[in-house]
Structures are given as structure tokens and as C-alpha cells.
Design a protein around this nucleic acid. Structure first.
Length: 416
DNA sequence: TGTCGGGTAAACATCG
DNA sequence: TCGATGTTTACCCGAC
């Protein structure tokens, strides 16, 4: 892969510990890091991870959805945004999968991932809710995602530590004193080097689904296919124009919750995409908000157990056997699958409100009134959410046009 | 051919 | 004392 700018081994010249921590303190204005990261996030995006998924009024999913929608249209620096997701999503989206890997399906799950240790660490850290992980959890993340390392010689852990120590991209943060988190420090990605890492990540070929093992999150997690979401969005735009009530998107979201863990969890490119988008809008923008917090929100929103700090805990929550689909694909769910699941269990965990309303009314439950009332309340919230989505979509559109206008002007100025 | 990034191994120190 | 963690050094390899 290409060189990562600024990754020269100069850390030894730095005084370990104090300066780095101080540096991060400046970045995060922190006491202990998780709190500080939270504090660094804009209030509007602050999420109680425990309730994020349950709260119907929570609009993180809108952030995510609009991000996804936008990411389909453009990437940063004119680079096409491509993703292993595309390989999964179907024919209607560009796919680089097969061309990146000859016979990707034959690529063993135990084959070496095409990412450098720096990138693996980066992905692991970025994938964590707090954007910082202890070494042990970095190991776990890598192990979970790349089974190759389960059978690989133990030296890889040394390499991970070596990278953490050597790479300027990674900063060590002392754990907060109040917590008993075991020994060792937390490792974070230096925001200054994020673009470099992103650049390096972009240059990576996409691993096959088997190489990049993607454990699904909790059943409650998941995001939407851009196509599905955009279709609902379009419908709602039409409905709004007609003066009709928008479709309860949140309901649709919940219905589709388990739609695609791959979509939700292909962290490499999801990081990629979100960061690309963020930097494409304004490279000077606070990384914590534009990239990290968005990813963090996804981590928070994608899983009801995301309040657990450990990815281990999250992944252990779901048995690995469930990752393998009937078609042999690992950790990926087709839309059809989840639809079937949904039909099998329309209420399920998804809390599909309208369906619940219909069911309860049909069955003539004694507390009809109560249920009807709660259904109405839920619908109100759903309307609100739908409205917000439309609003955000509008903002995105405006931003998109502004960016393109700016680019055009920039090009014109350059020509002059 | 030299440089650089990446991978690996190893030694050593520190800490819980 | 032991194991995990962190740092440093050295060497090799491949890409450019």
C-alpha cells in the first residue's frame, strides 16, 4: 500500500505519556477520555447509547441515513466511494468486489487481510464507541474481524503494539483514575493523522466478505439500504408535497432494522465513507464531530449493547454461528432474509408500531384504548422523525449543491 | 540503487 | 512471580 504521510517512527523522540496526554487533553478538553469525547461532540448529537435505539425520537439514524444517501453521490477528493457493501448490496450499485479480488468467494476466511496493522488498529479504534481502545480490545476487534489472526502466529500482537508505539497516528491516553479498567492505556487515533489513515484506507483493495469478517450487531441494530431509504424518502417527499402525512420512516427503519448488518458494519468503508464525506465538506471541520462522533453515534445507535465499552462484549453477545448465513456468506443478511424474518415475527424486537396496532386491534385486546393511544403517540413521533429526515435531506441537498458550486468556482478560478 | 513503509522478532522495562 | 503492556532496536521485504 501507499505510504502514510507522517507515519515515520519518531515517537521515541517524544516524551511519552505526559505530552501526549496533554496533547489529547487539548483536543478533547478532557478529564477522562470517554467523557471528554462526549463533551467534544455537539450537544445535538449527544446520545445516550443505552436508549439510542429505543428512543423513537432519536435521530441518529437520520444522520446515518442521510450520510449514506449522500455518500452514494459523491466522495472526497473526487475519488469514487466504493465499498465492500457494494458487493453485497446487489446489482444496482457499483461493485468492485470481484475485480478487487479474483475469486473472492474462494478467498479463505483465514487469509491475511489486505490491511496494514496501522489500518487495522485505526479501524478498530474508530469502530469503538469512544474512539479509543485498550490494546486488548484492539486485539479482540482484529480477531473478530479477521479470523486469520486466530490461527496466525502470536507475533501479530507484537506488531500491533509495535505499531501503536511507533506510529504517530496513535496516541496513548491514560485511563481515568476512577475506573478500574485493568492495566494498560487507551489508544486513540490522532485526528491530525486521520486523513492520512483515510487515504491509506482508500488505497486498500476491498477484502472479500470472508476476509473482512463482519459480525453483526445486536438484533436491534442495523441501518437501511440507501435504496430502500431513498425510496421511502421519495415517497414521503411526494406525500409532503401532496399535503399528506409522510410515511412513518422510523417505523420503516425499525422494520428494516436487521436489513443489513453488512451495511451497518462494514466498518472499513463505513469509516471511509463517513470520513470522506466529512472531509469533503470541510477538511478543517472538527474531526470529532465530522467523523468520529458520527461513527461513534453509529456505534451507539447500531446496538443496544453499545454502551458496553468493549467490542468483545458486543460481539460475544452474538454467537458467531449466527454470522454464517444459509448461503454460506458470513455475517451478511440479505433484504429478503430480513423481510422473511419480519413476516415471521412482525412484532418481534423491531417494534413495528403500525403492525402492532393492526394486530392488537384485530385480536380485540381488552386494553384497546390504551394501545390505540400509544399507537397514536408513536405515530406522532414517527411523523416527527420523518419530518426531520426530510429536513436533513434538504440540508444535505443544499450542502451538496453548495459544494458543487464551490468546486465549480474553484475550477474556474484555477483556469483563470 | 536508495528510500520508505510495513512486517516480524526480540530484548527490555514497567505495571497490576 | 507472572503475564500484559509499552518501548526500542534490528532486520528483512517489497514498492516506488
Amino acid at each position: 500500500m501507499g505510504p502514510i504521510i507522517g507515519m515515520t517512527p519518531e515517537k521515541r523522540a517524544e516524551t511519552p505519556g505526559a505530552e501526549k496526554v496533554a496533547g489529547l487533553s487539548q483536543i478533547y478538553k478532557m478529564g477522562s477520555l470517554p467523557e471528554a469525547v462526549d463533551a467534544a461532540r455537539p450537544k445535538a448529537t449527544l446520545v445516550n447509547s443505552e436508549s439510542a435505539d429505543d428512543e423513537l425520537t432519536n435521530l441518529n439514524w437520520l444522520h446515518e441515513s442521510t450520510n449514506l444517501l449522500t455518500n452514494f453521490s459523491f466522495g472526497s477528493e473526487g475519488l469514487p466511494i466504493v465499498s465492500p457493501l457494494y458487493d453485497i448490496e446487489g446489482d444496482d450499485v457499483p461493485s468492485l468486489g470481484p475485480s478487487c479480488y479474483p475469486n473472492p468467494e474462494k478467498k479463505s476466511a483465514t487469509s491475511k487481510p489486505p490491511y496494514s496493522f496501522s489500518l487495522l488498529i485505526y479501524m478498530a479504534i474508530e469502530h469503538s464507541p469512544n474512539k479509543c481502545l485498550p490494546v486488548k480490545e484492539i486485539y479482540s476487534w482484529i480477531l473478530n474481524r479477521f479470523p486469520y489472526f486466530a490461527t496466525a502466529p502470536t507475533g501479530w500482537k507484537n506488531s500491533v503494539r509495535h505499531n501503536l508505539s511507533l506510529n504517530k497516528c496513535f496516541q496513548k491516553v491514560e485511563r481515568s483514575h476512577g475506573k478500574v479498567n485493568g492495566k494498560g492505556s487507551l489508544w486513540c487515533v490522532d485526528p491530525e493523522y486521520k486523513p492520512n489513515l483515510m487515504q491509506a484506507l482508500k488505497k486498500q483493495p476491498f477484502p472479500s466478505r470472508s476476509t473482512f469478517y463482519t459480525p453483526p450487531a445486536s438484533p436491534q441494530s442495523g441501518s437501511l439500504s440507501p435504496h430502500y431509504l431513498s425510496s421511502v424518502l421519495k415517497q414521503n417527499q411526494v406525500r409532503t408535497l401532496k399535503g399528506e402525512k409522510p410515511l412513518p420512516l422510523k417505523t420503516a427503519v425499525q422494520k428494516k432494522r436487521s436489513y443489513s448488518n453488512a451495511f451497518n458494519h462494514s466498518s472499513a468503508m463505513r469509516l471511509h465513507e463517513s470520513d470522506s464525506l466529512a472531509t469533503s465538506i470541510d477538511p478543517k471541520e472538527d474531526h470529532n464531530y465530522s467523523a468520529s462522533s458520527m461513527t461513534a453515534q453509529r456505534c451507539a445507535s447500531r446496538s443496544s449493547v453499545s454502551s458496553l465499552s468493549s467490542v468483545d462484549e458486543v460481539y460475544e453477545f452474538i454467537p458467531k454461528s449466527s454470522h454464517v448465513g444459509s448461503d454460506g456468506s458470513e455475517g451478511f443478511h440479505s433484504e429478503e432474509d430480513t423481510d422473511v424474518d419480519y413476516e415471521d415475527d412482525p412484532l418481534g424486537d423491531s417494534g413495528y408500531a403500525s403492525q402492532a396496532c393492526a394486530d392488537t386491534s384485530e385480536k380485540g385486546q381488552p386494553d384497546k384504548k390504551m394501545r390505540k393511544q400509544s399507537c397514536q403517540e408513536i405515530d406522532e413521533e414517527l411523523k416527527e422523525a420523518a419530518g426531520s429526515l426530510l429536513h436533513l435531506a434538504g440540508i444535505r441537498t443544499c450542502l451538496g449543491s453548495l459544494i458543487s458550486t464551490a468546486k465549480t468556482q474553484n475550477q474556474k478560478q484555477r483556469k483563470k
